[in-house]
Write a protein that binds this DNA or RNA. Structure first.
Ligand SMILES: [Mn+2]
Ligand SMILES: [Mn+2]
Ligand SMILES: [Zn+2]
Ligand SMILES: [Zn+2]
Lengths: 146, 146
DNA sequence: TTTTTATGTGCAACTCAGTTGCGAAAAGAG
DNA sequence: CTCTTTTCGCAACTGAGTTGCACATAAAAA
């Protein structure tokens, strides 16, 4: 279950010097179990009815972002999507792909998009965010269903 | 003032078969006068106190997007930013640059970022959005003030 | 272990961008 | 000018995220 220490909720909390509370462990485990960024609403739904208050989830995510454990991946439908930060460096985040057919969003951490090192038209780029839209592998094979 | 017909509010409305009303002309002229995407709030502020109701501005922008005259450029601080669509094709939108110092966002229409033609890891990309962050030309020269 | 203290949590109320319903106004057709 | 259709203004609503404050609890100190 707990293969690498980076993928264990309690280990992540300890190395980030964050208090080990039930709500924090639950939020971390939701993010660890997901294959893509999640909203507060999705995290709360994943934890279940006995989980923490939604305000608590927001505050936990805020503290995780401050500690560098979690990153704000992107904003969609006016809702912030959060993901674990241990997969890629801060300033060159991997592209995120959203399927126009099934609506699922995936991380593409193995894709390395070059970021301009020299200024472009006088603009010095230090951080880039790329969002892709199109058809995911499974929707390309079966265009009707998911 | 009205150099090219593409840059004239009334002409844009006529060629899009949209009714020529004072609120629509005012919204179009705000976008024409701006060098970057605008929010409803910014458009309303630009028009002034005698301008249309904010709900009307939202509905006008909605109809412009449906007619292909305006595009939803990006979402920032939970607010949608709109820009005129006549500057670049639908599926390969130019990158938008936001300065971390002065906060201004600029369009970079002359920058042509390649979009993957072949599927990446099985994902067929049909639309891409790129956001850049860093220092704008004027903030690079005078790091303290704008 | 028990006590103490700093930090985390739950609840209610709030903010703010955007939406909806509906009656009034006005653009364009005839 | 009259009629029809679309647009507009207002009020109320929605939903994500925030804030203030009292209470709970993890971790440090005794
Ligand atoms: Mn990701
Ligand atoms: Mn632009
Ligand atoms: Zn799909
Ligand atoms: Zn600047």
């Amino acid at each position: 279950m707990t293969a690498r220490p980076e993928h264990d909720a309690v280990t992540i909390l300890q190395s980030a010097r964050l208090r080990r509370t039930a709500p924090r462990i639950a939020v971390l485990e939701s993010l660890l179990a997901s294959d893509g960024p999640l909203t507060q609403e999705q995290i709360t739904a994943h934890i279940g009815p006995r989980g923490p208050n939604r305000v608590t989830v927001y505050r936990i995510l805020e503290s995780f972002v401050a500690a560098g454990v979690v990153r704000q991946a992107f904003l969609r439908d006016r809702a912030q999507h959060y993901e674990l930060a241990h997969c890629c460096p801060r300033h060159r985040v991997h592209p995120h792909f959203t399927c126009t057919q099934c609506g699922k969003t995936c991380c593409l951490p193995e894709v390395d998009l070059p970021m301009p090192a020299a200024p472009v038209n006088g603009f010095l780029v230090s951080r880039q965010r790329v969002e892709w839209e199109g058809l995911c592998p499974s929707c390309r094979q079966s265009p009707a269903a998911d």
